[in-house]
Design a protein around this nucleic acid. Structure first.
Lengths: 241, 241
DNA sequence: TTCCATACTGACCGATCGGTCAGTACTATT
DNA sequence: AATAGTACTGACCGATCGGTCAGTATGGAA
């Protein structure tokens, strides 16, 4: 699968350098195609055609198909990571912060659907070694921050102390990513009505997660009804804004 | 991508029929290869070689590469679905039932790693129409049952009545599937110590989910049901606000 | 003007892909 | 013995794949 690795003499496309406009066009087209059709199903001729250049020119900018793919992944992850971080600002409570994070994260996933699928695919198919690279170079920052927020919530007494912060962080990501992944299937279950309403989903899921990690779930007077098992029938309790 | 659809005259490999031993061998090999390397990266010659037959013989048993793939998916899902259902038996409490389900489901995912990845991949890449097929023909039964269990828990007063049963069911699947998917990345985060301990993970995650959906999370005298919290800190201790 | 690196091209390469086909070997029925 | 249907094969096909190469156009530094 890996081609003969010529030592890249006179090859301009190094990892960090800025690309010429032609190279950037190629990269953009490739990102779209890889995301939409996957690695194997995307041909270099197709990329070239899409970018309006010759195939040989694509190989002029990128050493090989694989390197082009890596470059696409790199860029995609950079964007995705940056988008995640900016969800931090809002909210006084940690619960609110995480709530905002959930919403923003899912919104990002859905808005950048193709790239998201690309990244998720990369995570799923990653070998143990490849996983290490991804963990260290791509996801560490964002995930660390999430964990830090959870810890903050624990120290302030807002969250239970007996749970693993990383676990909650993982479950938060999990909630969104799996929703993103399974939408197309989920939508067709008759008893599922949130598949096409990400905002409602995120609210409900957040509610479910939080009342599992809040220190005092019984003390929530606002909705007032979480309490006692002896209560017969509760009128449909909505999670309101 | 789809080849010319010849109307399958004299072609023995119909969907429901039992396969000859040769055909089954081909299918088994194909399942392994598709799961390991994906659709495109698996060649029919490879399948043939692996099964110890000629390539022409593979095409004798299966109309096309795509049909072979579908057959593999069908079988994989059948197994997976059956494995899910048998987790039902145990547990008097609904909480215990779901707990057992979580453990059994994740165990199945991990034990049949390749096939699981195949199915997950199929879900993720499914088009809206393909998703409908999957929902109706593959996952409906298992998912319905999960939802039914949750509903049961609500009616018995064990679970909050104000949450969507399908949402909890979805989150349960989500928890396991995303763990399964992200293991190779997760493992490399320094503050994550559950990535290689699925049983512990499932216990912790279950605890988190349940205390979010139990009606009376404050009245947790029953420490035996969910299992012991792994961290030696006080559970559910209301620290000050 | 000369020089040289870079952007770019069309034609081409060997390999491999999914799939076909004519033909053989092996039954089981008539 | 003849027939018929199935399992199976090797040789082959056109298409497409990733990648190469010789060569041209361009533009800035000498």
């Amino acid at each position: 699968m890996t081609p003969t690795q010529t030592p890249d003499i006179t090859h301009p496309a190094r990892s960090e350098e800025r690309l010429s406009s032609g190279g950037q066009a190629v990269l953009d087209v490739a990102a779209g195609l890889f995301a939409e059709k996957g690695y194997d199903a995307t041909s270099m001729s197709e990329v070239a055609r899409g970018a309006g250049v010759s195939k040989a020119n694509v190989f002029h900018h990128f050493r090989s198909k694989h390197q082009l793919y890596l470059e696409v992944i790199r860029e995609a992850c950079r964007d995705s990571s940056a988008a995640l971080r900016q969800g931090r600002v809002s909210g006084s409570t940690v619960t609110e912060q995480l709530s905002a994070f959930l919403a923003h994260h899912l919104d990002t996933l859905l808005r950048r659907e193709q790239v998201s699928r690309l990244v998720v695919r990369e995570v799923m198919e990653s070998s143990p070694e490849g996983g290490k690279e991804l963990a260290e170079q791509v996801f560490f920052e964002g995930f660390s921050e999430l964990v830090a927020i959870v810890r903050e919530g624990q120290e302030s007494g807002e969250f239970r102390r007996d749970l693993d912060p990383a676990l909650l962080a993982h479950l938060i990501i999990s909630t969104n990513v799996f929703f993103f992944q399974s939408r197309n299937v989920l939508r067709h279950f008759p008893f599922v009505d949130f598949a096409d309403d990400p905002r409602r989903f995120v609210k409900m899921a957040g509610d479910l997660l939080f009342h599992g990690c809040l220190t005092a779930p019984s003390a929530e007077a606002s909705s007032g009804t979480v309490g006692h098992p002896s209560l017969p029938v509760n009128p449909q309790e909505k999670v309101h804004d």
